[in-house]
């Protein structure tokens, strides 16, 4: 049995150390008795990490990787910021463009996920998104997202950012279900 003081110290330690975002330990099926009686404190999710959890994680996964049908973010998404068109694409892809989040929170969310999942792929002179940039980009709608993605990826290949298109491909299979 832990003393109440020891539990409190542990709780403070864990809550202070866990604000960063998705952690390696997945709380998943934490027995309620741990929260009730042992006062177990789970990783806190706040700010842009919470916006990611609520709006993106369900499909993109808490580690930024999911099934083949959902484009992976991890070790990939940063490549798009090497060109203006790619930078715009990340904002204009329909679920970002139509998100209920404000321009400022979207800017924070995109900057957070680029840093969290794809820091290594960012250009050395990467400039974070601002709310104004998001607002400007959001005023333009992409007609065909698949076609635009292809154009953007082809340009990234030509610019030598990625060796070939397969580096950024995902399985888009209409009628699969």
């Amino acid at each position: 049995m832990q003393s109440p003081m020891a539990s409190l110290v542990l709780a403070i330690f864990f809550s202070a150390s866990a604000i960063a975002g998705p952690s390696a330990v997945q709380p998943d099926d934490v027995p309620d008795v741990l929260i009730r009686e042992k006062r177990t404190v789970l990783p806190r999710v706040a700010g842009a990490a919470e916006d990611y959890s609520r709006n993106c994680q369900g499909c993109h996964g808490h580690l930024g990787v999911s099934v083949a049908e959902v484009p992976a973010l991890r070790s990939r998404v940063g490549y798009f910021t090497h060109t203006l068109a790619g930078r715009a694409y990340l904002v204009q892809v329909p679920n970002v463009l139509q998100s209920p989040l404000s321009d400022a929170r979207l800017a924070g969310l995109l900057n957070w996920l680029l840093d969290e999942y794809s820091r290594e792929q960012l250009p050395p002179d990467f400039q974070p998104y601002t709310a104004d940039e998001i607002a400007a980009l959001r005023s333009t709608r992409i007609e065909s997202v698949i076609e635009r993605r292809r154009e953007v990826v082809d340009a990234l290949v030509r610019a030598g950012v990625v060796p070939d298109a397969s580096a950024l491909s995902f399985s888009f299979a209409p009628g699969h279900y």
Partner: peptide
């Protein structure tokens, strides 16, 4: 059931993701 091998629904689960 998107992305899984089957779109046939069986039941709903509710996993804790974190504390906010």
């Amino acid at each position: 059931c998107f992305g899984g091998s089957s779109m046939v629904y069986h039941c709903s689960s509710a996993a804790i993701v974190g504390q906010i």
